[in-house]
Design a protein around this nucleic acid. Structure first.
Lengths: 355, 355
DNA sequence: TTGTAAGCGTTATCAG
DNA sequence: CTGATAACGCTTACAA
């Protein structure tokens, strides 16, 4: 038939429901009913069909089922990236949610490009029952348009768009303010800030929290550098900081950049936290293994992913499982990197540590 | 019609090719041809169809296309886990390969359970054009049976099964031997080994490399502990080691366990590498950020993923892109954690360091 | 209880 | 160049 049917290798035709029917001496309808547990099938018929199906190693064609049933049992996910500690944690949560709901995960990366995200969206929207999209762009409405109501849409890290069915995010402002306050409380000033991409909502809010905490404390903020949330940009920012008089502390808008900055400073012989204190945001698993362990704003990344998927599935089933807008509050995680040890002479013992 | 068609929320019917045809005053066949760039369509007709399609925001239904075309443009991937540094890197490579080939990625985790893996396989095999499966179980044949030739199957970290179309892996034995030799060359002995799961092929081979290097050097190996490749098991192993006289060095079968062991030892006040040297396997991104940076066997994880996907796609298109069996050679990555600093008194300066 | 046949949304064949 | 129409593999009214 179809030209494309020419398979490479052994031409092994799929076993279809028709084959099972023929072999069992019943119609395809009966096979379908028998295999899907419909009431109206004789026990005897069902048994025979099941036996034959097993013998023939029949596996229903999921694509055909989807077409007929109008559901795919698949949730599409579009993230800026698929790797790195942050997304890895997120994916763990997404997977967890998908397992709980017995759904598959169709994953795609937008690489931070909104047009790529929209492209992926259009490819996906007819393959999935729902979409979970992380689009930290300021203009999430474009995404909503692309989905066009075809399937439930759950947004991550996005200002609630009127069109989206739900949104999950982190209270970045509060988290950043908490970290900033902590640094100020430790006596560090000025505090430099390494920000994220300008068009990234999370980044904007974190900067805002940083500034508000300074206003509140009546302290003048240190320099604000631009980064892109990647480790390298933190490294570059660190180099930049080294060119002038060092601030007392550096607050990077995420842990990856804090890590990069840490490297740059350390390579220059700057001690953390004795010479410069350091803090990040996200609490990626790596944070506590750094030397020194990194102070940061703890976000339950995986939990967000899980809830997002489960909410998305729920929406597809007509349940409104969660409020439209869900904001997770980060918790301040104080580790050694931010403590004020300027007074200390020799490095303290590994276990102890003065505050 | 179909019961399931009742959608929650606004009942927004999909725009189908039929709608476009009607609006453009042509048949569905012509719409299909016009949109898919067939030669035999008047320029004028094509233009009109395209305009109408855009106006109606028509997006072809991927599922229906798949059913008709017998291809899904999707590669299925089954991994033991979706998170953690190792799989994160692997996924990065898989994504890269998929992008290069313009394919989607259907991801699933087997959580180390072969029956779960088989379940996922059966769900997937009619949704994808090919499968990339990482099944570090000793019996990969079960997987081959489950796929049953329906689509190309590429195995990761598995002994080449007759039934698989290709396999990618790491030369675990050589890598482990190299690390072991390095530790012995540094003068460490005995060396304890923290192994992976017993039924895991990678783990078996790494243990073998460890032993062979000892035989070759005519040195008696230290104790061999059992782990499961996760951080916690490395931690437990570390605790176990602490109960007896400490070995000169510990070689963990992967970096995650090395990390766990490092923690256990450090919490007990043991200095690395002064008191005990440490090495891992994989060179996950985290390894170089540890304190001290971890000596390990460097595996180009992402590269394996990329090649596996591209090979899988190639197989589906009838091309035999790569040899059936592909073994990547790890490179020894020597960092501070394995050096012999037993002679040194006080901790060396951050920059320097004796060998 | 079972079979027939009409969809699900495409593409491809075959006449016109 | 274009239009019917038969697949693709499955589910489900409707009839028997």
């Amino acid at each position: 038939m179809q030209e494309a049917a020419r398979r490479s290798g052994i031409e092994r035709r799929r076993v279809t429901i028709r084959d099972v029917g023929r072999a069992a001496g019943v119609s395809v309808a009966t096979v379908s009913r028998a295999l899907n547990g419909s009431e109206s099938v004789t026990l005897e018929t069902r048994a025979r069909v099941q036996r034959v199906a097993k013998e023939l190693d029949f596996v229903p064609h999921a694509g055909a089922q989807s077409l007929s049933l109008q559901r795919t049992d698949t949730i599409g996910v579009i993230l800026p990236d698929l790797h790195g500690e942050y997304f890895s944690e997120l994916i763990r949560g997404l997977d967890l949610g998908a397992r709980n709901c017995r759904r598959n995960l169709l994953l795609s990366a937008s690489h931070g490009d909104i047009s790529e995200a929209i492209g992926a969206l259009r490819t996906m929207r007819s393959r999935v029952d729902g979409l979970v999209v992380m689009s930290p762009f300021t203009d999430g409405d474009l995404l909503v348009d692309a989905v066009n109501g075809a399937v439930p849409l759950v947004l991550l890290s996005t200002r609630a768009s009127a069109g989206a069915d739900a949104a999950f995010g982190v209270d970045n402002r509060a988290g950043a303010a908490a970290v900033t306050r902590h640094l100020l409380d430790e006596g560090h000033r000025p505090i430099a800030f390494i920000g994220g991409p300008a068009d990234n909502l999370d980044a904007q809010e974190r900067l805002r929290g940083f500034r508000e905490a300074h206003v509140e404390a009546r302290v003048k903020p240190g320099p604000v550098l631009r980064g892109n949330f990647r480790e390298e940009s933190g490294f570059s920012a660190g180099l930049l900081l080294l060119q002038k008089r060092l601030p007392d502390a550096v607050f990077a808008a995420n842990d990856a950049m804090a890590l990069g900055c840490l490297q740059a400073l350390r390579e220059a012989g700057v001690r953390i936290p004795e010479d410069v204190a350091l803090a990040g945001f996200d609490d990626i698993p790596l944070a506590r293994f750094l030397d020194p362990p990194l102070t940061t704003a703890g976000v339950r990344i995986a939990e967000i992913g899980r809830q997002a998927v489960e909410c998305c599935v729920g929406l597809g089933e007509g349940r409104a499982t969660a409020p439209t807008q869900n904001l997770f509050a980060p918790t301040l995680v104080v580790r050694a990197s931010s403590l004020n040890r300027r007074r200390a002479g020799p490095p303290p013992s590994p276990t102890g540590g003065t505050t």
